Computed example of a mutant assay.
Amino acid sequence: GELLEPRRQRLQEWWVQVGLLAMPLLAAYLHIPPPQLFPALHSWKSSGKFFIYKGLHSVGVVGSLEIVVLLLHCFPTSSYDWYKIWGGLTLRFHHVIALDFLGFGFSDKPRPIVEALLRHLGLQNHRISLLSHDYGDIAAQELLYRYKQNRSGRLTIKSLCIFPETHRPLLLQKLLKDGGLTPVFGPYTRPSESELWDMWAGIRSNDRNLVIDSLLQYINQRKKFRRRWVGALVSVTIPIHFIYGPLDPINPYPEFLELYKKTLPRSTMSILDEHISHYPQLEDPMGFLNAYMGFINS
């Protein structure tokens, strides 16, 4: 007891010192201004418009060119994920819509937000083709469920194209905390320094980096509502297509592909080059566009 007590006291003093040092660092971090936007991201933000959803701002970007393509982005990024294929989509489709989910990108800190945006744009009567990635798959599956249950109002879903939801969420959390976004890109298709900075700028916007742990609750929702959402995917009769990068560390080949084929045997799929990973629309925009257009045209 006499030997342990001084050691315990020293340990307590050490933690107090760590706490005192950490407080000013945390205060300084909280007051760091958001990073400056590179021209491409600034242009993307400027081309979008805000709309109000239950008192919160969300961002929507709308193409100028008779089908509506609705783009649902990944975690933890934003609608900017689609900028490399935006031109190709707007040349083909009359309406292309990309939104930042609440808490992402330039939006304030949800699923009904998607239907609210379509009503806001006057497109609720159109036939919708969903193109979703990872986190966006949750919104897509909920929309499918509501469509199947006749709860989506006048919203009609024509087709769904997905690329992987998170098969190993704990790995995703570890990659984000330890290595940033770089490990989820292929070794030959990793973003440039300016592109990584723009991704960070989107994450840092409106201090969303401070609530990243609460946004990760979608992983728990995925477990809780798995039967509802997977059931919606399995039971709908609309065409479903899957675009896959075989080098995706979160959804590893071939295990994930085998699971997907077993779950959705009627779905068609496109497998991209072997070096493409978790962000195929950024890593191989032309290959991705060709795969998506092939699905739509078929």
Rank of each mutant, 00 (worst) to 15 (best):
G105I: 04
S107P: 01
K109C: 07
P110I: 15
P110A: 14
P110Y: 15
R111W: 10
R111F: 11
I113L: 13
I113V: 13
I113D: 10
I113N: 09
V114H: 11
L117A: 06
L117F: 09
L121V: 08
L121R: 12
L121E: 13
G122Y: 01
G122I: 01
G122P: 01
G122H: 00
G122D: 00
G122T: 01
Q124G: 04
Q124M: 08
N125H: 11
N125V: 02
N125Y: 05
N125A: 03
N125F: 02
H126D: 06
R127H: 08
I128G: 06
I128Y: 02
I128H: 04
S129F: 15
S129P: 11
L131I: 07
S132V: 10
H133K: 04
H133G: 04
Y135P: 08
Y135E: 09
Y135G: 09
Y135Q: 09
G136L: 04
D137R: 06
I138A: 08
A139H: 13
A139V: 13
Q141H: 15
E142K: 15
E142M: 15
L143D: 11
Y147E: 05
K148F: 05
K148V: 03
K148Q: 12
Q149D: 11
R151T: 15
R154H: 14
L155D: 08
K158P: 05
S159Y: 01
S159A: 09
S159D: 11
S159C: 09
C161N: 05
C161E: 08
F163C: 08
F163N: 11
F163S: 07
H167M: 12
R168T: 13
R168W: 06
R168F: 07
R168L: 10
L170I: 13
L170T: 12
L171T: 01
L172Y: 02
Q173F: 13
K174I: 12
L175Q: 04
L175D: 06
L175C: 03
K177F: 15
G179E: 08
L181R: 01
L181E: 01
P183K: 12
P183W: 08
V184T: 15
V184D: 08
F185H: 09
F185R: 03
F185V: 03
F185A: 03
G186K: 00
P187D: 15
P187W: 01
Y188E: 14
R190N: 09
R190W: 10
P191K: 04
S192F: 02
E193C: 04
E193N: 03
E193A: 10
S194M: 00
S194Q: 03
M199G: 00
A201C: 07
R204F: 00
S205H: 10
S205T: 02
D207T: 01
R208I: 03
N209T: 02
